[in-house]
Simulated assay, not measured.
Amino acid sequence: MRDDGLERAIDAAGGIAQLARKIGISQPSVSTWTRVPAQRVVAVETATGVPRNDLRPDLYEQAMPAEPVDPVDAARGQEYALLATLLSAPPSKRLLDQLAALGGDATPLGRAHAALADAAARAVPSQVEREYFDLFVGLGRGELLPYASYYLTGFLNERPLSRLRADLTKLGIERIANNSEPEDHVAILCEIMSGLADGGLDASPDAQRAFFNNHVSPWMGRLFADMEGTGNARFYRAVGALGRTFIEIETEAFTFAN
């Protein structure tokens, strides 16, 4: 039996098929859920408007930090959540309109935001959907394979994935049966980092740094650089530039903190 949060999300999306499409996974995977998986909470919240506290109160109420979240960490969480949303499925017209209103400044991240806003303002939803398909899905496979195992070993479902699964178990993040998407997909890892950054997932600063160093830093910047350098994608080049810039900032910050 589905819990109330999942039922609300399905109703808000207009059905199981629509929810699956909005978050970029297969309908059978969503059909097997009894509650929203921890690594999908941010994507479902973004797609449906149902707050994460309602989707998974066990994670986002009991695990709420005692002190208010630092504004920098809250902003980091939002940045990761944005990347997770853009990498889990092509953006809707509504999201493109919201991105077009992003402001920028003279910092590297501010310039990346401004470039993304410009790309969103020029984007045609159907063309962005085609970009996403060609880059990440394709006929047989996409131009890019956004998985840690592939970038670190040249193959899918290798040891980096098994090490990630062991660390997710330590963090209390469950794998849902019959969910075909491996956990080392870039969108899932960004979603997990969002929860670690904004306090939605209960983990110490040392655990957060270790997770980043072990599962994000060794490869994700290269994926974003490849995305930025692709010749046929206009909108997702801007996403790649934003992701590369943000991961560089995160890497420097974690190195300094260490």
Rank of each mutant, 00 (worst) to 15 (best):
V216H: 03
A253H: 06
T230E: 08
Y236N: 02
W219P: 08
E228H: 10
P218R: 07
M220E: 05
L242F: 12
A233T: 12
G243A: 02
E228N: 12
E250F: 03
N214V: 07
I247D: 03
A203T: 11
A233L: 07
F224W: 08
E228Y: 07
L242D: 03
M220D: 07
E250L: 14
E252R: 11
L223S: 02
N214C: 13
F246Y: 11
E248M: 03
N214L: 13
F235W: 03
E248R: 04
A207P: 01
M227F: 06
A207W: 04
L223K: 05
A238L: 06
R209S: 13
M220Q: 10
N214R: 13
A225W: 00
L242E: 02
L242C: 01
T255L: 12
A203N: 05
L242P: 06
E228L: 10
G229N: 12
P205K: 09
T251C: 06
G221C: 09
G240Y: 01
D226Q: 09
V216I: 15
L223W: 06
F211Q: 06
I247C: 04
G221P: 03
P205H: 06
A203C: 12
F246T: 00
F254P: 04
T230I: 10
G229F: 08
T255S: 15
N213T: 14
T230V: 13
D226E: 15
F224Q: 00
A210C: 11
A203F: 10
N213F: 12
T245H: 00
A210L: 11
F254V: 15
E252D: 11
F235K: 01
P218C: 13
L223Y: 09
E248W: 01
S204R: 11
N232M: 08
F254Q: 14
G240H: 02
A241Y: 02
V216N: 05
E252M: 10
F224E: 00
T230M: 04
G221N: 14
F254H: 10
T251S: 14
Y236P: 00
G229I: 09
A225I: 14
P205A: 09
S204W: 06
P218Q: 10
S217N: 15
W219R: 00
N232C: 10
E228G: 10
T251H: 05
N232S: 14
G231W: 05
G229A: 13
A203D: 02
I247P: 01
A253F: 04
H215T: 13
R209V: 07
F211K: 06
Q208P: 05
Y236L: 03
M227W: 05
G231H: 09
M227N: 05
